[in-house]
């Protein structure tokens, strides 16, 4: 990743965090923009999950990451802390790869 891409990402990320506090102040947005802003991360997170579980380059594949995701899903469902969830996933994948 180039430094210029990194700086661009930093500037954009900060702008997103600061746009409310710095520009809009305490004004309230309408219900539809508020709802869409709140939902914006949902399809991206879902896409990231499937892409990083089922792909190898441009190929779709099933491997130890699926079992790891299943374990993570149980952790999330049982309201396990964030760290427990990601570590359980890592341990599951590592153990499966060591075993087979």
């Amino acid at each position: 990743m180039s430094w210029s891409a990194l700086i661009l990402l930093a500037v954009g990320s900060y702008a997103l965090k600061a746009v409310g506090p710095m520009l809009l102040g305490d004004r309230i947005l309408g219900p539809t923009p508020t709802r869409l802003l709140g939902l914006a991360a949902v399809p991206l997170l879902a896409a990231l999950i499937v892409v990083q579980t089922f792909t190898d380059g441009q190929a779709l594949t099933v491997d130890a990451r699926l079992a790891a995701l299943a374990v993570a899903a149980v952790c999330v469902w049982r309201r396990a802390p964030f760290l427990v969830t990601v570590l359980a996933a890592a341990i599951t994948a590592a153990a499966l790869r060591a075993a087979f």
Binding site: L45, R65, A68, A72, A73, T85, A89, A90, A93
Partner: peptide
């Protein structure tokens, strides 16, 4: 298994 942390974190 660090690569498996990505989807788990995004799920959380």
């Amino acid at each position: 298994g660090l690569d498996a942390m990505f989807p788990a974190a995004f799920l959380a």
